[in-house]
Design a protein around this nucleic acid. Structure first.
Lengths: 172, 172
DNA sequence: GATAGAATACTCGGATAGTACATGTCCGAGTGAGGAAGG
DNA sequence: CCTTCCTCACTCGGACATGTACTATCCGAGTATTCTATC
């Protein structure tokens, strides 16, 4: 029951990318510098987000990352699942039938109640994450966060974002 | 986001211990054999439950483990926290203030919205686990589970449980 | 025969190796930009 | 002056070490039982 450190980085980067204009991109190195992270390692997580179709990557000079779809259509659950994997945290290994008492397999057709309870709790967890959109995070930050910190973030984005030539043509 | 394998073992053992009579005990070796687990390793998890005041351990011959309180007063959350630790799964390391843009610390007095959203989801997870009592698991198993498997479990408990002499006097 | 003592066997508990996963780092493939040469 | 080609620098992507935490195991501390010797 411990989430990797990369989840925090992934969400922060996605929030930052939500502030870039149109389909401009932002290099991974800039994101790493923004949060004081190792550039080489952050790319690993950004790549996971790209594989999950949450981000898009543009190679070459003036390349970088951008959101693959609108921030209103990205939830925290999407990001968490992309980084941590889609498997449930609790995996029932059916130890109830590993004992020495041999019983026909037909006695275990029903899933065990413990597994059901654990999975139900995990569904509640995921449902709570699915309710939070990336746009909510950004809006809450702009409204509730400290104005100085917000201004600094905007300045950082302004400084490092790179507009794309074939921007309008690559709209999906 | 991955729970250790010991959680499953701990819950199954606790459910089994909920079926022992009065304050009889059951040795850890018997529980390990019941689920085909390594006896030496299972003791580690049982010890965690004992430290968390969920189980009681009785040393010496005819010793073993028993529930420290009624099964109605033990929830799945108690067991999960005892095994996995009480720390939240998501730990905010405040990477937002690690960047090169130096801002006064007063700008970060408010907890970051990402952390708040993650913790809220975890509260939902824990609340769902707290609603499930150990007695519910046992009752559901007795009512919905396969009668053959249930009978085999009862026979196993009957065979290995050890009544305690000073049983009634040690009632809390 | 009853009792006190010591040896014993069984239990849990903590300290000790092995392994899988997450973390952190490095180098290579690919691409667009920029500049130089030619028309 | 414009076009074309080449070189280059910058980007992401995957392959390679390292650290940590989970898993697994073994040996030691403690206690009720049990046997024996004595009263």
């Amino acid at each position: 029951m411990k989430l990797g450190e990369g989840v925090e980085a992934a969400i922060h980067c996605a929030s930052t990318l939500a502030s870039v204009d149109g389909n401009s991109t932002m290099p991974g190195a800039a994101l790493a510098e923004c949060f004081g992270l190792s550039p080489s390692y952050l790319l690993k997580h950004l790549n996971q987000l790209t594989t999950a179709r949450i981000l898009e990557s543009v190679p070459g000079p003036a390349g970088g990352y951008r959101l693959a779809r609108a921030a209103e259509r990205i939830t925290l659950l999407d990001i968490v699942l992309a980084v941590e994997g889609r498997e449930p945290a609790f995996r029932c290994s059916e130890i109830r039938q590993r004992g020495p008492v041999k019983i026909d397999a037909s006695a275990y057709v029903k899933p065990c109640g413990i597994n059901a309870a654990m999975l139900k709790a995990e569904r509640a967890y995921r449902a709570a994450l699915a309710e939070v959109k990336l746009s909510d995070i950004v809006a809450e930050y702009a409204a509730e966060g400290d104005p100085r910190a917000f201004a600094a973030s905007c300045a950082f984005v302004e400084r490092y974002q790179r507009p794309q030539k074939s921007a309008s043509s690559k709209q999906i």
